[in-house]
Write a protein that binds this DNA or RNA. Structure first.
Ligand SMILES: [Mn+2]
Ligand SMILES: [Mn+2]
Ligand SMILES: [Mn+2]
Ligand SMILES: [Mn+2]
Lengths: 145, 145
DNA sequence: AACCAATTGTAGCCTTGGCTAAGTTTTTTG
DNA sequence: CAAAAAACTTAGCCAAGGCTACAATTGGTT
């Protein structure tokens, strides 16, 4: 049980887990932004800087800086003083994120978590769910329904 | 369905969710460090800077800077060139985090996620689980067992 | 057309959490 | 017990994501 190889395995999984968390946090902002931009365009016809600021609860200056990064990384296109658009790459990511988001919310509700808490917790949890776990979530929620 | 009050509620929950995520990320490092320090002391008798660096997969310089902050915030005590200790406040937090971590891992396994993936995903998920959801996780895993 | 309010942009600041590189101290080892 | 290795500290750099304050642009109102 307490063999060296066992301990090494635990150690290896441990640091891999933290590495995975750091990676998730690096893509998190891009994921939330593209999802929100897609939602806003679907709901209101356009996504403006003020809308994003209000949705995320941050200042417009923060949104502006983030948009500049997402533009540089190829997720968003933006012209000065005009509303925001997603690139095909950004759209694809938005769809995947929306789907994942909904699976997580649905799953949490299906194990008895209230709608509000499910929404609140899902916004963070969604970024730390591997494909395997996502599949398990989807399967469970579907069976439960 | 698409009444204004409904839309305002959605909007309110939305920004509250992102605020909750930002808060979780602010306490995350402290939580992971105190838990790890407690684990190392339990397993090896002491927690050293190199141990933490290897466990988290970061450099010892990064650990050092973080420890300085945790000291300032009252979670850790440290004397130069000596191993690290938790304050009572740090110990209390470590226990809560360890318990929460185990609940999350156990829950993921109970819905069919493999042991390795459960460990990997739990390290991030744990910080985004509210008390209500944690209770639901614990209840489900217990029932399933 | 001119003005004013709203929106967007930009500069500069802060904190966190990464890193490398170089200097100290402690511990081990020959 | 001296030298080498290991561990620790410190300084300085970077990127991300917050903020405030101020400047520029747009768009609606009169
Ligand atoms: Mn999210
Ligand atoms: Mn989301
Ligand atoms: Mn963690
Ligand atoms: Mn997170």
């Amino acid at each position: 049980m307490a063999t060296p190889s066992n301990k090494n395995l635990r150690t290896e999984v441990r640091s891999a887990a933290f590495e995975q968390v750091r990676e998730a946090h690096q893509t998190e902002t891009a994921e939330d932004y593209v999802e929100m931009i897609a939602d806003l365009i679907a709901e209101k016809g356009e996504a403006r800087v003020v809308d994003l600021a209000s949705a995320f609860g941050v200042t417009h200056a923060t949104v502006n800086k983030t948009i500049a990064r997402l533009n540089k990384e190829g997720f968003v296109t933006n012209e000065k003083y005009r509303s925001l658009f997603l690139t095909p790459k950004g759209q694809k990511m938005a769809e995947a994120c929306k789907s994942r988001h909904e699976i997580v919310v649905g799953f949490l509700k299906s194990i008895g978590v209230s709608a509000r808490t499910a929404e609140l917790d899902a916004e963070g949890v969604e970024h730390h769910i591997s494909p395997e776990t996502l599949k398990a979530f989807a399967a469970f929620a579907k069976k439960k329904k």
